[in-house]
């Protein structure tokens, strides 16, 4: 049930990354236990102690603490604290390009979901988002203005079609309220 695509050539995280994850998880799970323990039990109002709101999250926090400790121990066993072995390999050019694409995608998605929605009509927000996404990711440096007309034009066209079609289909066919 591993429902996510596995890109070719992916690497396992380094032991050091696992140790860092374990540390964050440990802090988080201890926080969960502390907050769960501080929840009221309602026994003063005659309720059963075994129906207290903190029991279940406290149980989850305890299990997560245990699992975080096992993850930390395993990452140390695998060399997280041993100089170069634990750090993994340095990022290559492909990784840097991937990170740049990721960063741009995150910014565009945030601008659309947090900035544009509610500020302009939904169809326009979609059109602006889709057009800018395509133009930015298909941008080829060094092209002349005339060579850009066609790709930018199709991007604007796709953006407009997406904006109008999504708005029409979901509002008029599926009767869904749009943000």
């Amino acid at each position: 049930m591993s429902d996510h695509p596995a890109p070719a050539g992916e690497r396992a995280p380094s032991p050091r990354a696992d140790l860092l994850t374990a540390a964050v998880l440990l802090a988080f799970s201890i926080g969960v236990i502390v907050l769960s323990a501080g929840m009221p039990t309602f026994t003063d109002k005659g309720a059963s102690l075994f129906l207290a709101p903190g029991i279940v999250p406290g149980f989850y926090g305890s299990v997560l603490t245990l699992l975080a400790l096992v993850l930390a121990a395993r990452s140390i066993w695998r060399g997280a604290l041993r100089g170069d072995r634990g750090a993994g390999t340095a990022s290559g050019a492909g990784d840097r390009a991937g990170l740049l694409r990721l960063g741009i995608a995150v910014v565009l998605c945030l601008v659309f979901a947090v900035g544009l929605i509610g500020l302009v009509p939904f169809w326009l927000a979609v059109a602006l988002f889709v057009t800018s996404f395509i133009v930015i990711f298909e941008w080829q440096p060094g092209l002349g203005a005339s060579a850009r007309v066609r790709p930018v034009g199709t991007a604007v066209l796709q953006g407009m079609i997406a904006g109008l079609l999504v708005t029409y289909v979901f509002q008029e066919v599926f009767f869904v309220r749009l943000p």
Partner: peptide, 20 residues
């Protein structure tokens, strides 16, 4: 580059749709 922005738009509509 042409598919993913549309998918993200659908995700946003989908997340909003149930409780608005």
């Amino acid at each position: 580059e042409r598919l993913m922005p549309v998918v993200f738009v659908l995700c946003t509509v989908g997340a909003f749709a149930i409780t608005s």
